[in-house]
Design a protein around this nucleic acid. Sequence first.
DNA 1: TTACGGTGATTAAACGATTACTCAAGGCGA
DNA 2: TCGCCTTGAGTAATCGTTTAATCACCGTAA
Lengths: 334, 334
Amino acid sequence: MQPKLKDIARELGVSTATISNVLSGKGRVSDETRRLVSEKVRELGYRPGGAGRALRTGRSGVFGLVLPDISNPLFPAFAQAIETAAARSGYGVLIADSHGDPAAQTDALLRMIQRGAEGIVIVPCRGTQVRDLPLPAVVIDSASSPGNSVCSDHHAGGRLAVTHLQELGHRRLTLVGQSRRSSVQSDRIGGMLAALRSDVRADIFWLEDGAPDFAALVHAGTTAIIATSDLHALTALTCLQGAGVAVPEQASVMGFDDHSFSARISPGLTTLAQNMPEIAATAVEHLAELLDGAPRPAARIVPMALRLRGSTGPAPTDPHPTPYQEAQQGDVTS
Amino acid sequence: MQPKLKDIARELGVSTATISNVLSGKGRVSDETRRLVSEKVRELGYRPGGAGRALRTGRSGVFGLVLPDISNPLFPAFAQAIETAAARSGYGVLIADSHGDPAAQTDALLRMIQRGAEGIVIVPCRGTQVRDLPLPAVVIDSASSPGNSVCSDHHAGGRLAVTHLQELGHRRLTLVGQSRRSSVQSDRIGGMLAALRSDVRADIFWLEDGAPDFAALVHAGTTAIIATSDLHALTALTCLQGAGVAVPEQASVMGFDDHSFSARISPGLTTLAQNMPEIAATAVEHLAELLDGAPRPAARIVPMALRLRGSTGPAPTDPHPTPYQEAQQGDVTS
DNA sequence: TTACGGTGATTAAACGATTACTCAAGGCGA
DNA sequence: TCGCCTTGAGTAATCGTTTAATCACCGTAA
């Protein structure tokens, strides 16, 4: 069994209050006693038990991490970053999965409160707003969603993506999103459109409406595909490769988030990475401030970084433009 | 602020003991009082606070989940399954990442103990053995590693993979692993070799020794590649596609673990999936038993399931065997 | 000699829930 | 009528830690 304050006190013939004082640096204790106590604490490997402390101080040293879908492939990096940042600040992390269900999300929050979580870091379900929480909370969503505390600059990421392709000479882009309701994806697409030069055309596809035939799109004139997620970029990439379309020679492909596989495929996937350590550190930092009674810190927007890999390259100099393509291009530039 | 036992007691003019008795169903309480209390509890939305309960009963209702690498792409499904199973049993889950470092693993364990975790589910660092833990623990590793409590039948998974390809007519396989030190990967490779028919040849590559040129392997006669992870299978698949090798027409590719992307690529990746919900449920169940003082339950081996997708198909009937290939095949069948 | 201030450490209360023990009241049989 | 058992509920201790309040002691100045 773990040693208690009482055990140390008994062995040293002092009171538990003195031990506590030494450990916390408060109160008045002689140097000699301080030394003796420290030594004994080390010797027995004493660590204050969380239950007693939490009960007395109301601080459990734990916060909750509520996610809409742990199985999202982006989550590992995120959870790891949060856990690391939390551990650095001396906090433990309690996880919960809301399965994208607002009711489950609420339930998870209640359970965390019951477990004594001091605060929570929450990535809200798509479409739900988090507010009036009975607990200090840090919300990680997108810059455009109200209540957001920290997030990547998805809009700038979108701009970076389009700019990158435009500089490579691409003039016909296909943008692929999953769901219109996702504010993150909307921000990214919005950024892409904002960076679009007037002589560049972009078509948008939402996968919730059905999957496009990527090879056909390329044959119809698209030279680059940007997906709002590496997962969908990967789908596009493998579809193209399977159909005999060379990447990046005939078409470039880009994604978002730099998933674990993105660097491991051939060609490597050019993507816009979120700075997870930075976001997590900021989230934990903000939470710590809130717990110390500070006012809600201003929302923080963390830049995204372009990870240049092999899936993007110069736009092909089409040797045989079809009449169809010419007509389309005429539409745009007119 | 959340209501306390005292608040309810005061409002009803009874003692806190009675409330507690009603909530726990113990002790003697009249039906009338029971009704009144239940009603008030619902009305105020009272939930017993974890700190006080943990202190008194020694049970926090929380256990730890210690992983060697949260960012492993297999983790999301696993964490989700554990969290779901735990929530079903009324437990919370505290996570920690050992970053593959045995020292950090030990440290994480100490922190969990300090936080009051009742037990832990641990996926040990590669090469480390977990034992003599000061806490009830469930170890998820591989069947061949001592101390293991639950795991997938990696060996049978390997056998299934090879059998599948053999039935499709493949006679030259390439097996790809990452690290010899991983007992999971060793088990899988071991299973593959065990299922090998005498007229089938298999070459093993370990990626820790360097990455092979998959296209060259196919040109040299290999008709199927089995990787011990979907991540490496994906690398192989995209390399082949990029080099103009048609999958599965010219070569089949298989992986393990059914990662999130495996169903989203083209062709879909045939893979052997772990039954994460089952493993997680068993782990949590075993842990619950241990916490109830039961003796350590027998280790449980959960079957793996073949997920048939487009990346595997009949072995190509090579119309133009090169002399080199004939020589190689001669070697094998002789 | 007395009063006082500083030092070092103890005492005891508090946090919230659980639970063994006690207690009062009423019913019932002897 | 007395004693005993049952019922329903309250009392108080306990878990481990923190912390405000208190106390004993000693040196020093009045």
